[in-house]
Design a protein around this nucleic acid. Structure first.
Length: 440
RNA sequence: CGGGGCGUAGCUCAGCCUGGUAGAGCGCUUGCUUUGGGAGCAAGAAGUCGCAAGUUCGAAUCUUGUCGCCCCGACCA
């Protein structure tokens, strides 16, 4: 993409309304614009990142055997009356009346809808288990939206719902999602730590929040230091085999949010030098909730002996839009964002340091064409800004790699490659630049 | 929902207390000079001062109401 033809409105100064770093950088780097409290437009660069995050989430859901569908944003109130949540959900639910005076709502979550779909379509235990998910916009009318997309009212969420005929099946479904979540966050360069969460009336040990350690996190968290170094991507995972050993490893060390925190147990189980007391951002939450919805909504299947079995369910959420803020919180410096390659909007930024200079223009254009041809996603800054301004913009938007093409280098047949994360710069011959990135 | 703060040019803000021709920096446009880490000079465009009512000869400024946004707390299947 040529920057001169793109839409990338960056800001030099920090907008007054943005207090935390991810919010400031998202506005400054031209990723989003606020439209109302807790409601954002996604500008081209932000949308590319959002799609990249979605892609990783989708790939890991599919790998774990979940099946994608898409449910609407607007739902009928009647459905929510079946589960009893229409009254219970309170003012966080945005209620809408259509032209026929029918009561509708903008979905804050989809347990009712997916339960109705499965109830009406699956009649026998032979068609189970199933895990269905979608990635769709939600709306929760938060009392106090804040922190940009981290706590917006409209937000993009991946929510999966598992259906099994017994609790043992539900546990397997839960464990698959648990591992899928670990892989998902790890692929985005995040250290997400599963922490025991409140299970509500169901009880048991099957509810975890996935927390990223960050100073600006909304909740206080406590955990064993070693958890931070655990690596799931180095582990071979067979989703058809038992995942219990992996779960046991990740849940074997102390980790809890402040609601579940037990100071005495923390001190007893975790040596003082291994104790972490920090703040965290919740980027996922998984639940087992049994027949909470299937029972009131009559979601049953015929069992092997013809008996009626109420479906055992779980739900599994990842805040896709929130993840963008979380990634920035976890990966930035004074100059701007530092995108992990897996979610970066472009792999590299090609900087023409002296637009208008025939030799530099020619070398840059040639390089750009070659990079595009090689399938390397490139943002080519061909504008006539000064070099300093271009560097500042590139650092701000945080592409993993920069290639600087200027008169000094071109005269010697070289370009400078800069690693955004380390700041390291190396000179590479102009005709070797493409191979350097196409191979990686 | 309790408490606090802020709405003036695209952005960051001054002016308001003490009413009297609406300002600065950045950004934007044009020209010249520049050109490897957010250039310099010159000229220029750009704001019904959130909205409404009131007080007044006169309101960005005072009063009341209202809307919006931000922060702290409570809340957050």
């Amino acid at each position: 993409m040529r920057l001169s033809r793109y839409f990338l409105p960056t800001l030099r100064e920090n907008p007054a309304e943005a207090q935390i770093v991810s919010h400031r950088l998202m506005l400054r780097a031209g990723l989003v614009r606020q439209s109302a409290a807790g409601i954002y437009s996604w500008l081209p660069l932000g949308l590319k990142v959002l799609r990249n995050i979605e892609k990783i989430v989708r790939e890991e859901q599919n790998r774990a055997g979940a099946i994608e569908l898409l449910m609407p944003t607007i739902q009928s109130a009647d459905l929510w009356r079946e589960s009893g949540r229409y009254e219970a959900y309170g003012k966080e639910m945005l209620r809408i009346t259509d032209r026929h005076e029918r009561e509708m709502l903008f979905g804050p979550t989809n347990e009712e809808l997916i339960t109705a779909i499965v109830r009406d379509s699956i009649k026998t235990y032979r068609d189970l288990p199933r895990n269905l998910y979608h990635i769709q916009w939600k709306f929760r009318d938060e009392v106090r939206p804040r922190f940009g997309v981290m706590r917006g009212r409209e937000f993009l969420m991946k929510d999966a719902y598992s259906f099994d005929i017994d609790k043992e099946g539900a546990r397997r479904a839960y464990e698959k999602m648990f591992v899928a979540y670990l892989r998902t966050y790890a692929r985005m360069g995040l250290k997400a730590i599963p922490m025991a969460a409140d299970t509500g009336p169901i009880g048991g040990d099957m509810s975890h929040e996935f927390i990223i350690l960050a100073d600006t996190g909304e909740s206080a968290v406590f955990c064993h230091k070693d958890l931070v170094d655990y690596d799931i991507l180095g582990t071979e995972v067979d989703f058809d085999a038992s995942l219990t050993p992996i779960i046991d490893r990740w849940t074997g060390l102390y980790a809890a949010t402040d609601e579940k925190h037990d100071a005495a147990r923390f001190d007893a189980e975790v040596p003082a030098d291994k104790q972490i007391a920090a703040r965290g951002i919740e980027v996922g939450h998984i639940f087992y909730f049994g027949t909470k919805y299937s029972k009131p909504m009559g979601a049953v299947v015929a069992g092997p002996n013809g008996e009626s079995i109420e479906l055992e369910m779980g739900s599994y959420g990842i805040g896709v839009s929130r993840l963008m803020g979380a990634i920035i919180e976890a990966s930035h410096d004074d100059a701007g964002i530092v995108w992990p390659e897996s979610v970066a909007p472009f792999k590299l930024g090609l900087v023409n340091l002296k637009a208008g200079d025939a030799a530099v223009d020619a070398a840059s254009a040639k390089l750009y064409a070659a990079l595009e041809a090689a399938g390397v996603e490139t943002l080519y800054d061909d504008t006539d800004e000064r070099a300093g301004a271009k560097f500042a913009t590139m650092d701000l938007i945080g592409l993993p790699w920069q290639v600087h093409v200027g008169p000094r280098g071109v005269a010697r047949g070289v370009a400078e490659i800069k690693n955004r994360k380390t700041g390291e710069r190396t000179e590479v011959a102009l005709d070797e630049v493409v191979a350097r990135f196409a191979a990686a």
